[in-house]
Design a protein around this nucleic acid. Structure first.
Lengths: 141, 141
DNA sequence: ATAGTAAAGGTCAAATAAAGTCAAAAGAGG
DNA sequence: CCTCTTTTGACTTTATTTGACCTTTACTAT
C-alpha cells in the first residue's frame, strides 16, 4: 500500500497527538510543510479532511507572526454517568466515526454482544449491555 | 474451454491472496489492468463478479491519488467440535493462528469479555464465557 | 500611538490521479 | 438463433497536489 503524502502527514500528526500528554498538539503549518517538503496548503488539506469534528478532533489556529494550528482530540461526547443508558450500537458507531474501530471490528462486537445476550435470561441483557459499553469505553478512553 | 481474461485475472488475484500473510491484498486497478493489458473496468468486472461477499470476499477501495482496491478473504469455516469446553482464550489464540483475527482484535475481545464478566456474579461468568465462545464460533462459520 | 512590514495561516480553483458506472459490442455455448 | 458472459470505452465521481491570491497578527521604526 503506497501512502499518499496526505496519508503520511495524517499519520505523523496522529502519532504526535497520541504521544502528547493532553491529546493535543500545536504545530506551525509552514514548518510542517517544510518537513514534508510540500506547500502549506497541503497541511490545511490534511487537517480539514482528516481531523474533522466528526472524527473527534477540534482545531483552532491563529494567523500572523507566531501563528499556529492546534489540534485537540476531543473527548467522547458521552459522559461516564450516561453510560448505562447509551445504546451500544450508537456507541460503536461513534467509535467507528472516530476511526477507533474498523467496520469489521464493530460488526464483530455487535455480533458477539447480540449473540451472547441472546442465550441469556432477558433481565441480564441490560446488565451485560451496560457492562459491555463500560468496558468498551474504558478500552478506548 | 479456453480461459477467458477474466478467469486469468481471477486466478492471479486468488494466488496473491493465498500467498499473503493476512489473506488480504491491496492492488491498484490501473496497474493490474496494465499487467493484463486490458481496460481498468475489466478489473472491476472481475472483482464484482468473482470476489463478492457471497463468495467470501470483502472489498474496499479509494479513488483519487494513491487509490487502491483491497480484497479480503473473509474467514472460511472450521471443524465442529464440542464448543462448550473450549477455553475462550485458547480459542482466540487459535483464531489468531488461523489469521481470522488480528492481534488487536483478539486483545480487544479479551478485554471486553474479562471486563464485562468482572462486574457480574461469579456463577454467570461461565455461562457468558460459553455463550461468547459459541458466538465467536458462529461468527467465523 | 501609528503606519508599515514581515510572518503566519486561510481560501479556492485548476491540474492530475485514481476508481466507479453503465451500456453497447463481441463472443461462447446450447 | 438466443441467452449469458465478457470485453471495451466514454463518462462520472472522488481524492490529492499545487499555486496564486487573501486576511490576520506581531513587531518595528517613527
Amino acid at each position: 500500500m503506497k501512502k499518499s503524502l496526505a496519508d503520511r502527514i495524517e499519520q505523523y500528526l496522529k502519532v504526535l497527538i497520541s504521544r502528547s500528554d493532553d491529546k493535543a498538539i500545536e504545530i506551525q503549518r509552514i514548518e510542517l510543510a517544510e518537513t514534508f517538503d510540500c506547500v502549506p496548503s497541503q497541511v490545511t488539506y490534511v487537517i480539514s479532511t482528516r481531523f474533522t469534528e466528526k472524527e473527534g478532533y477540534i482545531t483552532e489556529s491563529r494567523r500572523g507572526g507566531c501563528g499556529y494550528v492546534r489540534i485537540r482530540q476531543s473527548p467522547p461526547s458521552f459522559g461516564e454517568d450516561d453510560l448505562e443508558y447509551i445504546d451500544l450500537f450508537a456507541f460503536l458507531a461513534e467509535l467507528k466515526q472516530r476511526q477507533l474501530l474498523s467496520n469489521r471490528e464493530a460488526e464483530l462486537i455487535k455480533y458477539l454482544v447480540v449473540n451472547t445476550c441472546a442465550s441469556l435470561p432477558g433481565e441480564d441483557k441490560r446488565k451485560i449491555n451496560a457492562a459491555m459499553v463500560k468496558a468498551l469505553y474504558n478500552y478506548f478512553v
